[in-house]
Nucleic acid binder design. Structure first.
Lengths: 192, 192
DNA sequence: AATAACTGAATGAACGTTCAATCATTCTAA
DNA sequence: TTAGAATGATTGAACGTTCATTCAGTTATT
């Protein structure tokens, strides 16, 4: 373990993996510690308690998503192109890091995602809201609530990735084209 | 308690409410028993163990959804009308029974929803698949995988209800029209 | 009388958390 | 430069609690 930040990160990554595999009820602190290569007590140097750890994963994950998407966003492009880049990169990210996809899906629908958490400033959410806001400012998409818009889009991306994952073999034999879902959503939100 | 079926039902409903409020990790058998008005041991007359109880809730919930939607489906109508009825009734159902909405959202993204569960015959899923299949047979919607189609549609309904719930007050001040989401999805799946 | 349902205290395993002891690193002062 | 004091991180056994599950005894039903 090089330094403290690495240690905190390895605790988070161990917990992330366990939640993905076994759900919130299947990631005991003892196991998190074991997989992270630290003692159980060490976790409490970095997190107040288990709930704090779960929220820590969420914040870490949100940061990762933002980095991946924002680094690949080219604000000089037409908004339509930026939208499809956003969709493609987010999909790519989820497929690259299935544990994040699994954790996020579980977290967002769980009581861990309390009103308190939702009201906390979140740089990924803020980035996404600004992203859609700029689409409106440029007249590319209809004026609507950017928060609602980002939830709608993100839900459909997560859902598409889940379908792709669960029906990998079956999909090959049908003519379903999940790429179309992005066009479908775009058609619905773009300015007339 | 009138009879055995009522008792089983009240156990399920008590557990459903607790999962909705506190998540899977926050519904101890002792509490389930208390809220259901039975002793802890009685639960084991109806369910092998706690996992069996959770799966029992899922099956009960799927049954409820199917009853509500299928009773209100008029197969003699144009498929387009049936689709919008489906959407409206499902939304209505979720808003009427927020605990079911909350439980279902959590269950579907959790490891409880194992491959084994997914492969079990499920009369609600079968009904939904047949519903979309009949839309294809009549040439109203594009030929695609009805399983994928129902997941896509159901995800968007659940998501829309969640947005509506979380942004109730905020939405009133914007010109977001969530009803449009159903039209957006319909435009994407209907036959050209 | 026989069977089945029900009870709730008892059980033991699992869990989150604590803490005295140990180890590593940084600082102090001679 | 360095002894050693001070600080902070780390450990893992121990603690108290909570939990799912069991079962001997009780009540209800057939």
């Amino acid at each position: 373990m090089e330094n403290l930040i690495d240690k905190k990160q390895s605790i988070i990554e161990s917990a992330l993996e366990l939640v993905y595999e076994n759900g919130f009820h299947g990631c005991p602190v003892s196991q998190v510690a074991k997989n992270a290569g630290v003692a159980a007590g060490t976790i409490y140097t970095y997190f107040e308690n288990k709930e704090d750890l779960i929220v820590g994963i969420y914040e870490h994950v949100a940061q990762q998503i933002m980095n991946y998407i924002s680094e690949r966003d080219d604000a000089s492009l037409e908004f339509e192109n930026r939208f499809f880049d956003y969709w493609r990169n987010f999909t790519e990210f989820y497929e690259k890091y299935p544990a994040i996809h699994g954790f996020y899906d579980q977290f967002l629908n769980s009581p861990f995602n309390s009103e308190e958490i939702q009201n906390k400033p979140n740089i990924w959410h803020e980035w996404a809201h600004k992203f859609f806001q700029s689409g409106m400012d440029k007249g590319a998409i209809r004026v609507t609530n950017p928060v609602v818009l980002s939830i709608l889009v993100n839900t459909n991306i997560a859902s598409t990735v889940r379908i792709k994952k669960n029906f990998k073999t079956k999909l090959a034999r049908t003519n379903v084209n999940l790429e179309e879902i992005s066009h479908l959503i775009w058609a619905g939100i773009k300015a007339d």
